[in-house]
Design a protein around this nucleic acid. Structure first.
Lengths: 152, 152
DNA sequence: ATTATATTTATAATAATTATAAGATAAGAT
DNA sequence: ATCTTATCTTATAATTATTATAAATATAAT
């Protein structure tokens, strides 16, 4: 974890941003909850446990900054809130998501499944792809199992 | 156009919803501006031209309803606003979008490019896909041309 | 240590969306 | 055609998410 904090510190410095304690606390929360998809409010509450004096606006600004630097992706699942998703080190693209409409769980797919599709978009539409957002909505494995056993 | 209004009327009635003049006016706006990706506010302003007494909350409620009935897709390009996108008649999936980060233009891809990817998700992740959201961010044909000529 | 710049805090403002209650209306039943 | 009733709309207010502002503070390089 210290390693990744250090890398992020360098990324900030490269653009002459500072790694303040507030920013560091925010990044630590994101690293600890890497699997989750926290809203700004969620992050704020968790950061407060480490640094109680932090303000919500600071969290927003920090997340915005991390988002500009492509350290996190700002994503949106259609509930009215933005969520923030840490990228894997060196990942070029936002990863894919599976949202279960039964239980609300969100799974991640790290693997890039869009390489072929992107080629088509580049060649047939002449659109130069820089990044993508892909979310599937449906029923997760667990909920399928529940439905089957409930109906039998 | 009358044909599609009629079909939508039937879809509403099937769930015992009424086609009020306000709802009809809203649907007409969506049909007329099928290529666009209007926000609730945009729709409101356009509907007001036909039905000046309509309230913004009614437009929101109507769009929400159309969204439940899968007549429109509520989409989100990461600016703080929800946008509403009419589905083609009988389309099973939300269509794909190309968002240009230079000029902000949004193109649509009607063709479903995700069939293969969905099979992989079903088989390898055991996730039963019902719908998807796919957006590419990048540079559109026009803006690529501009950049090239500007730099030469 | 000093300094210039970036940053945070606290507060207020804005923007998007949703809730509420009272009156109005669509559409099937009479 | 009128009646009836559940569905809708209006007008207004409330909520929620997010961003702006200005004064005070802290960072990191010299």
């Amino acid at each position: 974890m210290e390693h990744r904090i250090d890398r992020i510190k360098k990324q900030l410095h490269a653009q002459s941003y500072k790694l303040t304690p507030q920013r560091e606390a925010t990044v630590r929360v994101l690293l600890e909850r890497e699997e989750d998809h926290l809203s700004a409010e969620d992050v704020y509450l968790l950061v407060k446990e480490k640094a109680p004096e932090i303000g919500l606006a600071t969290v927003y600004r920090t997340l915005e900054l991390l988002s500009e630097l492509k350290i996190v992706d700002k994503i949106n699942f259609g509930d009215g809130v933005s969520r923030y998703d840490l990228r894997k080190e060196g990942a070029k693209h936002s990863h894919h998501h599976l949202v279960c409409s039964e239980c609300g769980a969100v799974e991640e797919i790290e693997e890039d499944l869009l390489e072929e599709v992107e080629k088509i978009v580049q060649n047939e539409w002449g659109f130069q792809v820089k990044d993508h957002r892909l979310t599937f909505h449906g029923v997760c494995k667990q909920c399928q199992a529940v439905t089957v056993s409930a109906s039998s």
